[in-house]
Design a protein around this nucleic acid. Structure first.
Lengths: 110, 110
DNA sequence: TTCGTTACTACGACTGTCATACTACGGCTG
DNA sequence: CAGCCGTAGTATGACAGTCGTAGTAACGAA
């Protein structure tokens, strides 16, 4: 099982986080578990990386936070995507498609 | 025409440079023109980024330099890929395939 | 002689990620 | 009831790759 190193996925954490929040609001720890699960253990995001990405996205207005109780009454910080966040997500998706096609051009050359 | 920003291609400059040197030895300025041409102007690498990537690759032993005359007798620093570089290139390609499939999983989810 | 293109190098700044470490609550086991 | 594991984070400083800015220098064309 090959894992993904952080430097190759660098810059796409925002995209990944937003793609999950597009489905439904969530909180940090759950987001990290979802990433792990959906990637089939091939990408495990570091806590510090995740939370710094989350804070960045919030500062930029792409997500917003609210407090809610999970099971057993524990309060957690939940995040939901904003309208600006959805727009940003679509842009990032286009950028990703472009990046894919450009890089593939170089690899296909050889 | 949408351009590729450097933060999305970050980490793949090594792969791109090696993919070109796999074909034939070349020098800095020519590599940057090839990148521009092959990407159809969608990715224009900054000089400083290119040369720091080249120096990094040489330090790591993935490419090696030699001096040669271009047209009109000007001496330029040419680079060719090493055996270690070819191995590294193949690894990076596999990593790229993995990254693609993982990121696509998140995007396809939604 | 000046300008544009070629062909670089140096330096300091910025950003995203990481390593390390710390806090704190709840549930389970011994 | 003590200790540990899983949950749910925050703080801090370091590092690597890229970028902005600037400078050098050789060559050909106008």
């Amino acid at each position: 099982m090959t894992m993904i190193s952080s430097d190759v996925i660098r810059g796409y954490n925002d995209l990944i986080i937003l793609s999950l929040l597009r489905e439904q609001p969530s909180y940090g720890y759950d987001i990290s578990r979802q990433i792990r699960t959906i990637s089939e253990e091939r990408y495990i995001i570091k806590e510090t990386t995740l939370y710094s990405a989350i804070n960045r996205l919030e500062k930029q207005g792409f997500i917003e936070s609210y407090f809610a109780h999970g099971e057993f009454g524990r309060v957690r910080t939940y995040y939901r995507i904003t309208a600006a966040g959805r727009t940003y997500y679509r842009e990032k998706c286009r950028e990703w498609d472009l990046t894919k096609s450009v890089i593939n051009q170089f690899i296909r050359e050889s």
